[in-house]
Design a protein around this nucleic acid. Structure first.
Lengths: 333, 333
DNA sequence: CTGGCTTATGAAAACGGTTGCAGTGACCCG
DNA sequence: CGGGTCACTGCAACCGTTTTCATAAGCCAG
């Protein structure tokens, strides 16, 4: 494929530019140190022979791999995607690369995956939206690699956490719906500890505010559009009939809405719907879906900022970064 | 974080097991060569000191990084996600890692991203669903790294391509709808060369079969749910009124359906809808959406199989792997 | 026995960079 | 003009594996 010979190495550039390999290395890593004229010669040599530094070799020598391992449950239809996208972009802008690994919807990080990340000398490990087993947490706690947990704010983060309080979300939704005058919510709760936290927050606030304990219904992960159908059926069976369905995700809300439209039920007059996540579809549905907005991109960017700060040796003291959330009131509730 | 000292190295294991570093290396890479008793001693030593091999150093020495760079336009709501998931899983099962990079919806692979992939000595580069610029293609063609293009079947692949003929999809859809008796299709075409190929295939087949040239309408990438609204509006304006809307994606189809339901239009009696992609939602919508199924997971797995074959030095001669597609006839058309 | 294989292991040279330390001028200042 | 600084660059020792080549031991046929 390549005409002749192998890829050029740093020595080739050095020879061509009439400098030492060390200087070429500095050209890439500490450009400020070079005399402008030297830099120019190197720049030209690099250009002419098409040199691309071997980052693996560099990482080995410098003990900084520039690799970040990102663990994510799934990516099909995942609420974490904006976070991942923002993170990949921001990392790439910093000259770092993202190693992606998937843990499956139950978020059991296989030890094998951890080993892969550690074996590649990842500069940092990002755990996305998972309740990780104690053994994994312990393993990571003992390891010097920086670990950032995202989307939740655990009691005691392994190192750092960037996210928001799911419990607070639940409370805010309860308050919002209470104030709007709804009285008989049906909670459609997905499995998983984060959804459970939101549920707990909702129920606590709802009952504290004088509401009677809401009817609940569990759906399996991932909480998909199709579950909406089952939820809607449940609405019909209940007596008294719920006046609002609080869904664990916008997809779910969407499913309920389609079902309701299909059955000729008016939203929100006959039945209100509340979602979670503020997916693009939430603002585009008929009716538009009231939901909770999470700035997923910001979670990704804050995470990268953390890594950058570590690189500069000034990690913040506060180990939890709360990006908050917003209730988005639209037509459906 | 770690109690004392740094991570154990291969020498530490060797010393503890009373063998040389070379033998420990073989324990991991060519286990068959070791005497069972030696292997057992090493196994124990590894276990006791918690050794994890430094894959970067290993890659440097062996010139096999075990890294695969995957380029993808976006991941939020992307039709490629099942492919990526399958690929990440399969790679991880092979002990390789996935480096993810995003090129944005227009799929302009920044040279910087290519350099990052090459600089990390990626064993292979996977391009997903893009029409890559000529300069990028040339650059990759000249480089010995294995390149796999997925989701399309270019005339002359850089190295290998795994996908299907978008043109053939368009033709098959035209035939299907013709046979079902539809006469006035409205084509909602997304930007991008793949969508364009499907459109070309459709139009050619449609007119060849005696249909009059279909009405077309362009929507911007990514073709989202919200575009469905505009498409539906267009249906109302046209005279004669279309009898089927051929959508560039299932999300789009979904959008049109919601709009139609909302307006009290019956599907497929008053208006039929046809999608593309067979997203989960297509089977769950009311009505269920007729569409084209692509086995995205298979594309990912075939790609990894290719990499594995390369590792074994037996790459196939045929450079295009066609995974085909299926028309899924459901309620909406 | 002996010589030729096979099997299991070790010694040491890569792999392609980075970086601490030292060296060299140029420049400045008293 | 001597000594001290500063800005820049080179030398060479790593970084932690893999892999080639060599060696030693065991085995078997002749």
């Amino acid at each position: 494929m390549i005409p002749g010979g192998s890829a050029p190495r740093i020595h080739d550039v050095a020879a061509r530019a009439g400098v030492s390999a060390a200087t070429v290395s500095r050209f890439f890593n500490m450009p400020g140190l070079l005399a402008e004229e030297t830099a120019e010669r190197i720049r030209r040599a690099v250009e002419e022979i098409g040199y691309v530094p071997n980052l693996n070799a560099g990482g080995l020598a410098s003990r900084r791999s520039g690799l970040v391992a990102v663990f994510v449950p799934v990516i099909s239809n995942s609420i974490f995607n904006p976070t991942i996208e923002a993170m990949v972009d921001a990392l790439s802008a910093e000259g770092m690369s993202t190693m992606l690994a998937m843990t499956g919807p139950r978020f059991e990080v296989a030890p094998r995956l951890i080993d892969a990340a550690l074996g590649r000398q990842a500069d940092a490990i990002v755990l996305t939206g998972g309740a990780h087993g104690e053994s994994v947490r312990r393993r990571l706690r003992e390891h010097p690699t920086l670990v950032v947990e995202t989307w939740g704010l655990p009691e005691d983060p392994i190192n750092y956490a960037v996210g928001f309080s799911h419990r607070a979300v639940g409370e805010a939704v309860a308050q919002f719906l209470g104030e709007r005058g709804y009285r008989r919510p049906l909670l459609v709760v997905a499995e998983g500890s984060r959804a459970q936290s939101r549920r707990d927050g909702f129920v606590e606030r709802w009952t504290t505010d004088g509401g009677s304990p809401p009817v609940e219904m569990k759906v399996s992960i991932p909480s998909r559009f199709g579950h909406g159908r089952a939820a809607f059926r449940r609405v019909g069976e209940l007596d008294p009939r719920p006046d609002v369905v609080v869904c664990g995700s916008d997809s779910l809300a969407q499913g309920v809405i389609v079902e309701a439209l299909h059955a000729g039920i008016r939203i929100p007059d006959d039945l209100a719907i509340f979602g979670f996540g503020n997916l693009a579809v939430a603002g585009e549905m008929r009716p538009t879906i009231s939901t909770v907005d999470i700035d997923g991109g910001r979670i990704g960017r804050e995470t990268v900022r953390l890594l950058k700060q570590r690189g500069e040796g000034r990690l913040p003291d506060e180990r939890k970064i709360d990006v908050g959330f917003r209730i988005i009131a639209r037509e459906s509730a």
